[in-house]
């Protein structure tokens, strides 16, 4: 046990004990009407959209879980199946890594923001919002992050062409930043 372990009781340097995570999560997930599965690296929990806030609060607060870091938020365009949001959480306390999947409708999806519990969610949510067209309810600063501020296109949707919009802005009529569909 190093000195640092004494200060921060985190299981540093040990392999992530992901085996127990599925057992731990099972009652919580089934209570909320979700399902558990496995990805190549993490445990995956599919959660209904309206239960996301409740679930994440439990992840953050329950002492057996204590997911204190939000690593990543990633939107996915599943075409026929609508959109999905992948949240990746990590628990420094237990060394657990978890992926939470939330399926949403293709258009006009409203998702609860996580910025209250995880300040780190701020930019991730802004990025997902501009790239896929999600609306994060309660986000403190819902502006475009990587794209121009008045550009309301969602480039990472599969329907979005690779080049067309940019060419249109340059050649056809209309000021840049206005989408011509």
């Amino acid at each position: 046990m190093t000195k640092a372990d004494a200060v921060y009781p985190y299981p540093i340097g040990k392999a992530a004990p992901n085996k127990h995570l599925a057992e731990l999560l099972e009652p919580l997930v089934s209570e909320l009407g979700g399902t558990l599965s496995e990805t190549t690296t993490d445990v995956n929990a599919d959660i209904p959209l309206e239960k996301l806030g409740q679930f994440v609060e439990a992840l953050n607060q329950r002492s057996a879980l204590q997911f204190d870091m939000l690593r990543n938020i990633s939107g996915v365009d599943l075409e026929a199946e609508g959109l999905a949001l992948k949240y990746h959480f990590y628990s420094f306390k237990h060394g657990h890594a978890l992926q939470v999947t939330v399926a949403t409708a293709y258009e006009g999806a409203h998702v609860q923001t996580l910025t209250g519990l995880y300040p780190a969610a701020d930019w991730h949510e802004r990025e997902a919002a501009e790239m896929f067209g999600f609306t994060f309810d309660g986000h403190p600063n819902p502006k475009n992050l990587l794209l121009e501020e008045d550009l309301h296109i969602h480039p990472l949707l599969k329907a979005h062409p690779l080049q067309k919009v940019e060419i249109k802005q340059g050649i056809e009529a209309g000021p840049p930043g206005v989408i011509l569909s």
Binding site: A4, Y8, I12, K14, M69, L70, R71, Y118, P119, A120
Partner: peptide, 26 residues
């Protein structure tokens, strides 16, 4: 705690005293 909540990782997180390095942790 604040660094973790803000999503800070790497040398900036280790500077706060937490020896968390993915090369060792995972």
């Amino acid at each position: 705690e604040r660094a973790i909540a803000l999503g800070i990782t790497g040398p900036c997180l280790r500077a706060t005293g937490l020896p968390w390095d993915l090369r060792k942790a995972e």
